[in-house]
Design a binder for these strands. Structure first.
Lengths: 193, 193
DNA sequence: GTCTATATGGGGATAGAC
DNA sequence: GTCTATCCCCATATAGAC
């Protein structure tokens, strides 16, 4: 399917150069087409971009949903640490997560509103999944249930810090060291002692 | 000074639209000039960009240095939480930190190497400052641990998560909630109990 | 669906008058 | 230092032949 090849190439260049820096001729060249042929598959640059964006969002969300629906619910330590590993794997294995991050952090100005809606949507869904899990764990007394501590947000902060390190992306050792430190302190902070 | 006005406008548009999306004509218009006049002050777009970048780096680093040289060393809780507040203030008060973050996360491809060097440089300096402080606090038994590296990286992860929330930037309440959660768990994770 | 040809606009950059 | 004029290049997009 040509339109899939076009989206793959578009994903690559949008991720490297951003919306403004990516050109249709570059994308077409990758697929072996002239840039004008893209218009037989997509209405224009915005249309192509938004389809790539929605694919990336879909992939990100479904990975999270699938992970937490198959994870061992009796072991929060393993479940949470495994999710961090999943995020790292996803980021390194294909470009969709990096694209998604770039566009949610710094969207092209004229598509800011559309993108913000998608970002809010996925954030709320993922937060809801985590909150459900944490509630189970608190009920089962597997983690502390202090009202002053909101473990979902604290864990999402650890996820954010991993994403930042992945975006920097120039130092595998530093990623490991920061993940180990953040995880150790986080886990101590939400466990019974 | 005209070149300062030009850099201010450039900072604004590079931050909003990125390197590729910002145009010299837009920048010049903001200052009341034609785009050609910019070449009387800067060698070209790259030169202008790199000067803005170095100003932003300088500002970021000097804020951190100044903060930790004047902070009360007997009170790590106050010192660290105050630094998070400083980061939030800096981010919201002027655009240099946002510009710096955008360019360190997603540099224009042809300047990637130069920017990476600047990022590594500032990161190492700031980490060294923090590591020194943490070592003092560990020695004084104000926080737990035997090596300063773990709490330093864990705290830098909290900083990263705050930055992510600032970059998203659409929800002040969510920023407060995530900061509170991340901070509470972090502090519990590094204190004696 | 892909191509050639073309329209239209904007980008960065340079030369030279004032 | 700022301007006008100009150059060259590449962008998105459309029209129409095959």
């Amino acid at each position: 399917m040509k339109s899939i090849e076009i989206k793959d190439a578009a994903l690559k260049y949008f991720t490297i150069h951003g919306y403004e820096g990516a050109s249709l001729s570059q994308i077409a060249k990758d697929v072996g087409l002239k840039k004008q042929s893209i218009y037989a598959h997509f209405k224009g640059k915005d249309d192509l971009f938004l389809q790539v964006l929605r694919d990336a969002k879909e992939m990100d969300l479904s990975s999270t949903v699938q992970y937490f629906s198959s994870v061992d619910s009796k072991n929060p330590e393993k479940a949470l640490y495994g999710y961090l590993q999943l995020v790292i794997d996803l980021f390194q294995k294909d470009e969709q997560l990096k694209f998604w991050l770039r566009m949610s952090f710094f969207p092209p100005a004229h598509l800011e509103k559309v993108i913000e809606r998608e970002v809010t949507d996925i954030e709320e869904k993922e937060r809801a999944i985590l909150e459900g899990k944490f509630q189970e764990w608190i009920n089962a007394k597997l983690i502390i249930g202090d009202a002053a501590i909101t473990p979902t947000f604290a864990f999402l902060s650890v996820v954010d810090s991993v994403l930042v390190e992945l975006v920097y992306g120039n130092d595998e050792e530093k990623l490991k060291a920061k993940l180990a430190a953040a995880w150790t302190v986080f886990w101590r902070g939400i466990s019974h002692q």
